Amino acid sequence: MTRGVLPALLVCAVLLTPACTRSSGGAATAQSAESATPTTSSATATSVAPPVVTTDDTPGVVPTPGTSAADEDCAPAAPPAVPVDVRIDDPKAPTVVVGAPEGWTTTPTPDGVTLTGPDGMSGTVTIAETALDPAAAFRGYADDLTASTTMSTMSLLPAETCGFSGQKLMGQLGGTVPDTVLYQARIVHVPGYLIAVYVEAPTGTTDFDAEAPVLTQGLQIGLP
């Protein structure tokens, strides 16, 4: 994907869902970051500092689970999806099963698969080694996605999968009508690897909102 460079508009939405859920429905709300300033009381001679509260402000980042069953079925694809088993030539890498909409074709690649659908829709599933922690890996993915655009929008939702940190991204990439695409992505950080499911379509594609979630809402993670 090649696009021009201008600052991206990032709209972060927070969807509170438990880890290892079977659905990611709910209402998205805007994320904000606030800093707390300790205060002292003038009513006493001794001031008491408030307790320090630390939080991770990256949506979808959760403590890495200590153990997880191999081939744990966390968010299975629902009919009419066609299961697609994605794996790479790395015995230490996780595997993933996604649901492809009926009528889509898949082609294996060294880092996963590519998918081709009707009306200009397409997608990829990749499993990439990473030395980054979840928050840094997610920021890097979002930066790479929007870095070469002349204009972009992004809504970002937490989407934990199998207890692992995860996010769902959606919006537009481009700047001019012929080049602008709609996209959805689901990314999951399994220690040492980043799984990314990405799907896009030309702006105005009527079936995109129905077909893209088939790929991004149903994931099954397998561990070596």
Rank of each mutant, 00 (worst) to 15 (best):
T150M: 10
M121D: 03
T67G: 07
D111M: 02
P134E: 03
A19H: 07
L169H: 09
A33H: 14
D133N: 08
A185H: 07
L219I: 04
V48D: 08
E211C: 07
L194A: 03
D85F: 12
T21V: 10
E160R: 05
M121K: 07
L9R: 14
R22K: 11
T29Q: 12
P191I: 01
S24M: 12
P65H: 05
D111Q: 09
S35W: 02
G218V: 02
A136C: 06
P63S: 12
C12K: 08
E211I: 06
Q220V: 15
Q172R: 12
T116M: 08
D119W: 04
G175V: 02
D144N: 08
L6W: 10
P79E: 08
A75P: 00
Q184R: 15
M151E: 14
T161Y: 01
A212W: 02
G204L: 05
V11S: 14
C20Y: 06
P94R: 11
M151L: 15
T95F: 00
L6S: 14
V181D: 02
A137R: 00
L145P: 03
M1V: 11
T40F: 06
S41I: 04
R139C: 05
P80H: 05
V113W: 03
H189E: 02
V61G: 00
T64W: 00
P83S: 04
T149V: 02
L156W: 14
R139Y: 07
A210V: 09
P94Y: 11
P38M: 00
L10F: 06
C20S: 15
G171D: 02
T40V: 09
V96R: 00
Y193C: 00
T216M: 05
L10N: 10
R186E: 02
A159C: 10
D85A: 14
T205G: 02
T17D: 10
A8M: 05
P51Y: 01
D57G: 10
I195T: 08
A19Y: 04
T29A: 13
L157V: 03
L15T: 15
A8N: 04
V14S: 08
W104G: 06
P118V: 09
A81K: 06
A49H: 03
T46V: 15
V14I: 11
G166Y: 01
M121Y: 06
G192K: 05
A147M: 11
A70R: 14
E72K: 10
C20F: 07
T153I: 11
R87T: 12
M121T: 14
I88E: 01
P51R: 05
T21R: 10
